[in-house]
Amino acid sequence: MTYYLTTLGVYAGVDIIACLALNLQFGVSGIVNFSFIVFQAAGAYTAAVLALPPDSQNGGFQHYVFGAQLPFPIPWIAAAVVGGVLSVPVGLVVLRHLRVDYQAIAMLVLSVIANLVITNARPFLNGAAGLSLVPQPLSDRFNAYSPTYLWAYVAVTFVCCALVFFVSQRIVKSPYGRTLRAMREHELAVTALGKNPVVLKMTIFVVGGVIAGLSGAILVGFITIWAPSTWLYPETLILFAAVIVGGRGNNWGALFGAALVPVGFEEATRYLPQFGPPGLVPALQWVAIGLLIIGFLWFRPKGVLPEKPGRFAAATPVVGARLTKEPGVS
């Protein structure tokens, strides 16, 4: 039971972090990052190979690069860095000149191809079998299977959630976030007002990549395995569903959506009894995700918790008088 609850807790935390990142990219800035899961995977692989011992160990049954056996928190930090660094070339190719739906298909194709390459290039990250026996953070000092450790892991995950939420709120509530929203509404008009759209898109794309990388590290540190089958391109669509259901552009919406869609649909039902022929339940889940997206875009495109406009204190009646109240974004 402890294992079930803590697993659910870590998955929930990771999904919340991922949805917050996707909300910054897609919800706030209008970047259709269909390869989001690739950045999470990049973080997970990075954290894994930095935490794992050289691949000659454990009987050499898996093959991978590095195997640096670095102590926590270096693998996590590196995962975030790799997520961000990987965003740079991808963003520069995809986000500069292409129409928004071209951007989306370019990302989608990237997601499929990245998975294909990692699956087939076995010596790199152990191919289709994936990595296993990834050491949990600080497992050399603590018993990683004790309830205390498991709950502590959940706690750390939620601290990371809180941190990411704090950063996301700062961005969304700032003039920078306002300009990103404006870019989402009409990119050319923002350009004509003297904003460089490439800088705007690249910064938020990299921020999203950093957070995605971190989310991957947190997940792999707990489940200790990572394989191509865990980051197939449809996984990204679950996160999109969460952001759309929760409310594009609203961090609380992303939080709510993450708790409802990926956690509710995927993780909770994972432990429920199956019915029908094998594979029927997951297939129906995917159909439900699709219906959820289409249904919300049709009936409630702004989501359950719609984006809130910036609020400003009322103007003072006398023009030119000193402002008595803060007119800033609240």
């Binding site: 306002r178 404006a182 509404e185 009409h186 050319l188 008009a189 923002v190 406009p309 400003f312």
Partner: peptide, 14 residues
Amino acid sequence: SEFAELTVLENLLV
């Protein structure tokens, strides 16, 4: 070319 989902004041502030 207004920023439709921003308020009028926000449109100017951008």
